[in-house]
Amino acid sequence: MNIWVLLKQTFDTEEKIVLTGGGISEAGVKWIINPYDEYAVEEAIRLVEQHGGKVNLLSVGPERAGEALRTALAMGADEAVLIHDSRIPQDEWAIAKVLSAFLADQGADLILGGNFSVDNGAGQVAIRIAEQLGLPHIGSITKLDISAAGEAIVHRDAEGDTEIIDAHLPALFTAQQGLNEPRYPTLPGIMKAKKKPFRLLSLDDIPGISLQELEARTTRVSLSLPPSRQAGVILQGDLAAQAADLIRRLRQDAKVI
């Protein structure tokens, strides 16, 4: 089974956001594999352990994203491709266009990605790629069984309900939390990862893509921090009195009940 996993490097979710010079500061930040993409990597490795085949990783991003790819290689993926090119606009249409142009002739049986990235959080790119490649997709999956014949039974999380869906490969699925418990890279895994094939590509390496097609459809106009919340009051007295006090304050001060 030839599996491609879409992967993005993101800030650790415990990082605070600091703005500098109109952008988000990356100074001293701890980087991780986007948690939802990590489920996709784990699922791909398990599928190859079960059926044989190859786990390929694909990312668009700056060169530092190579660290996230190395981590996924150390988990057990086989090969990695990083497309790094400053001509790619920060717009989901354009990024999906680049990734699908690359994937078009890779003969993928299965493409896995995360449900969304914890930084931008738009959740568009993977599903756009499915459309560009003419593949069926199932988003936000929590369970995946694939038979040797390529028949997939997929559980999809729909706001707490579970939809059970049949699909044939090739297809694209996006991972939701609960799909699996990602493994940690082992020391031998980390050593082996250093020798695994890793390709750094630019747009010039991807046939059939024109810069004109990559014209951004959306653009950032401003960036700011949300208003910070102030600590309020700690209620006093015995607990029953505090409960009554809370209701009075919700009614009279906050006016929410």
Binding site: K16, I17, D119, N120, T218, T219, L223, L225, P226
Partner: peptide
């Protein structure tokens, strides 16, 4: 952005 740690305006 970042689940609300930052906010952007897009057009």
């Amino acid at each position: 952005l970042y689940a609300g740690k930052a906010v952007e305006q897009r057009a």
